[in-house]
Nucleic acid binder design. Sequence first.
DNA 1: TTTTGATCATCC
DNA 2: GGATGATCAAAA
Length: 228
Amino acid sequence: MFAAPDTPPATEAGLLSRAEGIAGRTLAYLAEGLGRPVPDDLMRHKGWVGQLVEAALGSTAGSAAGPDFPKLGIELKTIPIDANGVPKETTFVCTAPLTEIGTLPWRDSPVRAKLARVLWIPVQAHKEIPLADRRVGSPCIWSPDAEEDARLEADWNELSGLVADGFVESITAHRGHWLQIRPKAANRKQRTWGEDDEGDPIRTLPRGFYLRRSFTTELLARRFIVAR
DNA sequence: TTTTGATCATCC
DNA sequence: GGATGATCAAAA
């Protein structure tokens, strides 16, 4: 049976080694080793896969702010893939800091910080496979290359500029090539502080930055050998 | 309540 | 089918 580590890996190589160790395993196998039940579906357990893999790799960060592996400065992202190895969903990056976004150049942005070093782990997600039988794919540790960084910076500048100018209420997810801003909330009634075009405080729906599927699709195609 | 982990449901 | 807007749970 799978024995889950109870401490975080000491090095990046150690983390990658653990990730390679669970590649090819089913979610049920990992869940059993962790003593966690496998839910019937993800309807009311949307974060279950991500949290399972976190625990399987020895992350103790929980829901604390910051990277999943603080000592290593590495963020873990599971990525749901279809039968062809193509991502099925966008990837949440971070909450949009609506009131301070105008003061944050790309180099100081939470998006850049989150994506500085990411451990991507694809997980089968097509509905035809029961949740328990879905398998974990091969991992890849990634940092944006110069081109990716530049493109993300351009998106950040566009989107953060709109928010800073008070257009948060009219931004749609159509904006941005690789990054987009979408709601990130319990429901549509939730509110947080933002600013209107006069710089005055307003109550508005919390938003988050997400990576488009086109971005993660290219990432997988270029830097992964996807387990089928 | 906020931050974490995301996927669902609907419209085009 | 794919993208957008809406939504769900656990932990601290």
